[in-house]
Design a binder for these strands. Structure first.
Length: 359
DNA sequence: TTGATTTGACCAAAG
DNA sequence: ACTTTGGTCAAATCA
């Protein structure tokens, strides 16, 4: 499965995911499938506009080469240096990247942002920008910048209504984003902007202010999916140190599923949504609201990343990841060991996959 | 007692 | 065609 050295644009039909980690150009390639379209235009409900929009906006907007630091760029910087394509492979992604550093999935096409995450968290998270950014700015600054841009993008989206998807936060599962955003986005969701495989958004945000706003927003509403999920499986993914949990939307006919990877601490390293909700999110906080994936974010863990793709969105990055990333950045060469933190310790203790994460 | 979670096994897809 | 890995199922367990 890791073979896509190229961009995930051609990810498998099921759930194309975009990962941020990629050092690739900010452009996010969406699956040919129009998943995005479908998502947005498809079922209006949960179909969430993807957070990717948001993210994508920053990424795509900024050229990798351009001076603007796009999220991806920042990430890239954090990652230290782009790894060979082969490393980008999903399998490796975790190995090196994850523990190492950004949880941000290195999967191509998937880009992650802290999901429940609050941008603030993001900012705080050293993982993204270990030490100092390549650009000379501290990772926090970089994050701030990125966040600001993201926020801006979101804001713009809202206003424009074209971008609905970006905030997709409404996402299928629910986006870890601020509820209000999610809702708004959902309402505004339109497929127009998302039709194209590549989503680009201008990132012209002045910055800090927005960032503050965004942060506030996010902080206020950590990520709540708003949907109820039932766990139906868990598996240790090969390149990952953390197990992946599989959830289904408990709604009657809702086909939506999501994969959540959590670190030992219970922090979500990555969340991938698959499918679209056929129903409106139970806005009331169901038990799930705080639990499944969203709960992670809700839990207040600073770590969250979100990736959205046509059908699926991925959220990743966790505090530990960030931390790890930091460490990783420093010790890129030692891939898995980088995570010398709790997780590592636990991992060692329970090498096997079957560890349970209290959810 | 019911529903959710856990966990090993099975199946399918991809390499 | 085989091997590996991811995803899902289903029985057992727990709350």
């Amino acid at each position: 499965m890791a073979e896509n050295d190229a961009v995930t644009s051609t990810e498998p039909p099921p759930a194309p995911r975009m990962t941020v980690g990629q050092l690739q150009p900010p452009t996010i390639a969406l699956p040919p499938r129009g998943g995005v379209d479908s998502i947005f235009s498809g079922s209006g409900f949960g179909a969430s506009p993807g957070p990717m929009t948001l993210v994508s906006s920053f990424f795509s907007e900024n050229d990798p080469d351009s001076d603007c630091r796009s999220f991806s760029q920042l990430l890239a910087g954090a990652m230290a240096s782009p790894r060979p394509a082969s490393e980008n492979s999903s399998s490796i992604r975790f190995r090196q990247s994850r523990p190492a550093g950004l949880v941000v999935s290195q999967q191509q096409g998937v880009f992650t942002i802290p999901p429940g995450l609050s941008p603030a968290s993001l900012l705080d998270s050293p993982g993204l920008f270990p030490g100092q950014g390549p650009f000379g700015m501290s990772h926090q600054q970089a994050l701030a910048q990125v966040t600001a841009q993201a926020v801006q993008a979101q804001a713009n989206l809202h206003v424009q209504g074209n971008f609905p998807s970006s905030l997709g936060i409404g996402l299928p599962g629910s986006a870890p984003f601020p509820a209000f955003i999610s809702e708004s986005m959902q309402q505004n969701v339109t497929s127009s902007a998302l039709d194209s495989t590549e989503i680009k958004e201008p990132a012209q945000y002045s910055g800090m202010e927005q960032r503050s706003q965004l942060s506030s927003m996010i902080v206020d509403k950590p990520a709540d999916d708003g949907y109820n999920w039932r766990k139906y499986g868990q598996k240790q993914v090969k390149g990952s140190e953390f197990p992946r949990s599989y959830y289904k939307c408990t709604h009657l006919n809702c086909p939506v599923k999501k994969k959540v990877e959590r670190s030992l601490d219970g922090q979500v390293t990555e969340i991938i949504y698959k499918g679209q909700h056929n129903h409106p999110p139970p806005q009331k906080r169901s038990k799930e609201s705080g639990n499944s994936n969203g709960n992670l974010a809700s839990q207040g863990n600073p770590e969250l990343n979100m990736n959205s793709t046509n059908e699926g969105m991925t959220f990743s990055l966790s505090r530990r990841d960030q931390e790890s990333s930091q460490a990783t950045a420093e010790h890129l060469s030692s891939d898995e060991e980088e995570v010398g933190n709790d997780e590592t310790r636990e991992s060692e203790d329970e090498p096997d996959a079957k560890r349970r994460y209290s959810v």
